[in-house]
Nucleic acid binder design. Sequence first.
DNA 1: GATGTGACGCCAC
DNA 2: CGTGGCGCCACAT
Length: 99
Amino acid sequence: MTQFEQSLYNILAVIPKGKLCSYGQLAKQCGYPNHARHVGKTLSKLPKDTKLPWFRVINAQGKISLTGDSFLRQKERLATEGIEVNEQGKIVNFRHYLW
DNA sequence: GATGTGACGCCAC
DNA sequence: CGTGGCGCCACAT
């Protein structure tokens, strides 16, 4: 477990329900600016039964970066928190950024 | 080392 | 808006 991963999980765990944040913001919060890519890489390796709110992480364009089934799963998880996502993965009601 | 590949970001056009 | 280019970092070839 790297320091980066440790920090990432800690930050991610405190993102409140109904709030969002981008990969870049997360990396920065961890103290590792410019590591947005690594955030995605790390999240992709989380177990499917993780309790961490990985679905509250979107890209800097306010869209879901996943595709196929994963895309649909994240879309649904967000929907249950009152966050609407259109067919293109774009967040409709954009006012839930945490930072 | 060199190269290719991502759940990315930013700036220009 | 959509695209393209370049920067960035870890990891597998």
